[in-house]
Amino acid sequence: METADLLERCYPGRRAELKRDIFRNALRLFNEQGIEATTIEMIRAECDTSVGAIYHHFGNKEGLVAALFFTALDDQAQLRDRYLADADTTQAGIYALVHSYVDWVDHQPEWARFQYHARFAVTKGPFKDELATRNKTRNRQLWEWLSAPERGDELKGVPAELMLSLIIGQADSYCRTWLSGRVKSRPMVYRDMLAEAAWRSISTGETRKQ
């Protein structure tokens, strides 16, 4: 799942070739130079296109940053949904959520690195409302799956607003540490340990004894 594959999945076909090229070069420059230091002119020079073409697709730099960020979120969500579709128990669902998160970061380190750095900019920028709406929809869908009647009382007592932090928090922490170069082992090495830790942090005592 390299960068080119992700872009082909999200923006397939010849008509989207320029958009993919802009995305590819912008992603590299944002990660290498930083979001603030990277200019539209720098991206234009790497793409060998016009400033007008970039503005036509994205409006401005904030629009390009947000488009990259939402592309990463959408691709990550698609992988999560595929993993979750195969889960037939609550525990399997928790494992699916952690595995999908870890696997996506492991296979898409450049996108994940950008995603971490860009989150603050998008949260504080002109696309903050769109991000909030997307997050609400995503969280509602996950909570509906986790709280479905067939799940029983396995997650009883866990506040909804705390659920995602308990499930993804430890995996997120390790992935960030790996992306910063402070640890060497790839996240996939610990995917099962992280999933088990997430399950133990939210399941009831009775469930853990089974």
Rank of each mutant, 00 (worst) to 15 (best):
L146G: 12
M188H: 11
D153G: 01
L164S: 05
R186Q: 12
E150C: 10
I167R: 05
P126Y: 00
K156M: 08
R182M: 11
P126A: 05
T137F: 14
A171T: 09
V183M: 01
F127C: 04
Q170R: 11
N135T: 13
N139L: 15
Q170K: 12
D192G: 05
Q170V: 08
L164N: 06
D153C: 04
E161D: 13
W178F: 13
S165E: 14
R151Y: 01
R140M: 14
D129L: 00
I167F: 12
A160N: 04
S165V: 05
M163C: 09
D172F: 12
L131P: 01
V189D: 02
G125Q: 02
W145F: 12
D153H: 06
G125Y: 02
K128L: 03
F127I: 07
P159N: 04
L162A: 12
L164C: 02
K156I: 09
G157P: 01
K156V: 09
S180L: 08
T123H: 07
T137Q: 13
R138G: 01
I167Q: 06
R191I: 10
P187T: 11
M163F: 05
P126K: 03
G169H: 05
L166R: 15
R134Y: 10
E130D: 14
D129H: 02
C175Q: 11
C175F: 08
Y190V: 03
G125T: 03
M163I: 07
E150R: 08
V183L: 00
N135E: 15
V183C: 00
T133L: 00
Q170A: 15
R186L: 10
I168D: 10
R191C: 05
D192T: 07
S185F: 15
L194V: 14
L142E: 03
L162T: 01
L179T: 03
Y190I: 05
T177N: 02
V183K: 03
C175Y: 09
T137L: 14
P159F: 03
L164G: 04
E154T: 06
L179I: 08
E130G: 11
S185V: 09
Q170D: 12
F127M: 06
P149G: 05
A132I: 04
A171C: 10
S173H: 07
Y174P: 08
P187D: 01
P149K: 02
D129R: 04
